[in-house]
Amino acid sequence: MIRAAGCVLWRPAPSGRGIEIALIHRPKYDDWSHPKGKLKPGETARECAVREVLEETGQACEPGDRLPTVRYVVKGRPKEVRYWSARALGGTFTPGREVDRLVWLPPAAARARLTRAQDREVLDALPAATPR
């Protein structure tokens, strides 16, 4: 089993109305997704999620509610990705080989931009308590 973790990263919209969702573009796959990655030895899923957000977006974050776990098969191996809702606390994005773009979008626009259906399902599960 490949174990991974990530976050639906959000921040209050600059307008003061609702929130924005961070999406990353990975040139290797030419896709838009939530920040996520594989667990390192001895790392908890939550620690991995926070680390991956920082590595891929440059943002420190505060994890909140657990979101659905996504399961799928990659090259014949089962993969499980645990997700959290996470509020962005600030930072600076630096494009790199793994992630070349970061966008902040309102939830509906983020949903439309996401490449995979399972990522849209995770976004849809953001708690009602999250400011929209």
Rank of each mutant, 00 (worst) to 15 (best):
P107N: 05
A88S: 15
R120I: 12
Y83M: 05
P95H: 04
R77D: 13
T92L: 07
D124E: 15
R17H: 10
P95Y: 07
E56V: 12
A112D: 05
P41D: 15
A108Y: 08
A112L: 03
G16Q: 11
T92H: 14
V122H: 06
K38I: 12
W84A: 01
L123V: 02
R71M: 05
D124P: 03
K36T: 02
R101Q: 15
L23W: 05
G37N: 03
K75C: 02
A125M: 13
V73P: 00
P35H: 01
R97C: 05
T115L: 03
E55A: 05
T44K: 06
P68Y: 00
G91L: 07
A129E: 13
P41C: 02
I24M: 14
P41Q: 03
G16C: 09
P127R: 01
G6R: 01
E47R: 03
P35L: 00
P78R: 01
F93P: 08
R3T: 06
T92F: 00
G37K: 00
L67N: 00
A88E: 13
P35W: 00
Y83E: 08
G96P: 14
G76L: 00
I21N: 14
R132V: 15
P14H: 04
L9W: 11
Q118I: 03
T69G: 05
V74E: 14
V53Y: 02
E121C: 09
W32R: 08
R120T: 07
P41F: 02
A112G: 08
V122A: 11
P106N: 01
A49W: 04
P27R: 04
D100S: 15
C48F: 09
R46A: 01
R82N: 06
M1A: 14
A112H: 10
P106C: 04
A5S: 11
R97E: 11
P127W: 01
A5P: 00
G76S: 03
G64R: 05
T57A: 13
A125Q: 13
H34D: 12
G90T: 07
G90M: 09
K28F: 12
P106E: 04
T130A: 15
L105A: 09
V50M: 07
R101D: 15
A110F: 08
G37C: 00
P106G: 02
E47L: 07
E121A: 02
G64E: 13
A4N: 03
C61M: 05
C61L: 10
R113W: 06
I24C: 08
T57Q: 02
R113Q: 15
R71K: 00
E56R: 05
S85N: 08
A125E: 05
C7G: 13
H25W: 05
E121T: 09
T94C: 11
S85Q: 10
R101P: 12
H25M: 14
T92A: 09
P107C: 04
G18R: 11
P131G: 11
V73F: 09
A112V: 10
G16S: 03
T130C: 15
A49K: 00
L105H: 03
Y72T: 03
A22F: 10
